[in-house]
């Protein structure tokens, strides 16, 4: 097990390294633009020179790697927050993204699993067909459509919630105030529909499979009631594939949703990514790309490893 984990992590680092290299090369050959401000221009040009931005590409890459390893320095933001380290810029944006997505997950996991269990228990009855049809619809509809529907009904028609997430100053200076949570509700809802539908579908599929298995029959002949057998045996076994999916979603929330952040103007990682592109802030763009890549790779590994922890029957690293 330990060997397998180490192997997977090393492989991940290798993949991350290759992707970073390619991204770096592709980003650094782009022409850089100087800001309008003359004083700033001189300062930035001097900094670029000092940081070796005018050296050959490979030398630049060497400097970049050296800075990351020795100083944990992923470059500097030149336009978004002038002269701030790219790492700090992204860390500042992490909290709103994580919060909105975390709320959304905490909201949708119980509902999703609940509906899934209901549909599986009532398989082929009307409850199941209603849930399955709705799931089919909700899984397919793009998230931005939900965002518009939520905005339209909750803001324009009913005027219960604000259009966008409050800025830090409006909400009392912290991301954890009730006011901030209140303003996040539309975004949380828009994110949740798809997650709930996906989870319902997954739970239903897994649970129907375990419900029809032979140990359920044994459990019933042993004298357990249907409810007992379902919760103690079927649900437990169905959770084996469901748990890793939930765990991977928890990691996935670091990445957040670009489009939802854009629509509800949440100052998160996704919005930072869009800003980095439009303002051509390439160091931040690099940082964000590495971040997204890392989150994706990490989610994959954790899912694979968690299988081994959740269900000891699954031996990791064996073919």
């Amino acid at each position: 097990m330990a060997k397998y984990i180490v192997k997977r992590i090393l492989l991940m680092l290798f993949t991350l390294f290759v992707i970073t290299t390619i991204c770096f090369m592709l980003v650094r050959i782009l022409p850089r633009e100087l800001p309008q401000d003359k004083n700033l221009q001189a300062v930035i040009e001097a900094r670029w020179d000092a940081l070796g931005y005018n050296e050959p590409l490979l030398v630049q890459y060497g400097i970049y790697l050296k800075n990351i390893i020795t100083k944990w320095d992923f470059g500097t933001s030149w336009y978004i927050s002038v002269m701030k380290p790219a790492w700090d810029v992204i860390i500042d944006r992490l909290l709103p993204t994580v919060l909105v997505n975390l709320y959304s997950l905490l909201f949708s996991i119980p509902i999703g699993i609940g509906f899934g269990v209901l549909a599986a228990i009532k398989k082929n009855k009307w409850q199941d067909s209603v849930i399955s049809t709705l799931v089919m619809l909700f899984v397919s509809i793009p998230s931005y459509v939900y965002a518009f529907l939520v905005q339209y009904f909750l803001y324009f028609k009913l005027d219960w919630f604000p259009l966008n997430v409050y800025s830090l100053a409006d909400a009392g200076g912290s991301w954890f105030t009730p006011k901030m949570f209140y303003s996040m509700i539309p975004a949380i809802l828009a994110l949740s529909f798809g997650v709930i539908a996906g989870l319902t579908r997954f739970t239903r599929a897994e649970l129907t499979e375990t419900l029809t298995s032979e140990y359920m029959l044994l459990a019933r002949t042993k004298g357990l009631t249907r409810a007992q057998a379902t919760t103690r045996h079927a649900l437990k076994n169905a959770m084996v594939p469901i748990m890793p999916m939930i765990i991977s979603s928890f990691i996935g929330i670091l990445g957040g949703s670009l489009i939802i952040e854009q629509i509800f103007s949440i100052p998160g990682v996704g919005q930072l990514y869009m800003k980095a592109i439009t303002l051509r802030d390439y160091d931040v763009f690099m940082m964000d790309s590495i971040f997204y890549t890392f989150v994706g790779l990490l989610a994959g590994i954790v899912v694979d490893i968690s299988y081994g922890f959740i269900d000891p029957r699954i031996r990791m690293g064996e073919r």
Binding site: L26, Y273, F285, S289, T293
Partner: peptide, 19 residues
């Protein structure tokens, strides 16, 4: 294939558009 699969699609799309 692993390496390619590791690159987030949004990053690929952005880089291709810029270049």
């Amino acid at each position: 294939a692993d390496i390619l699969a590791g690159v987030p699609f949004i990053v690929v799309a952005t880089l291709f558009q810029i270049h």
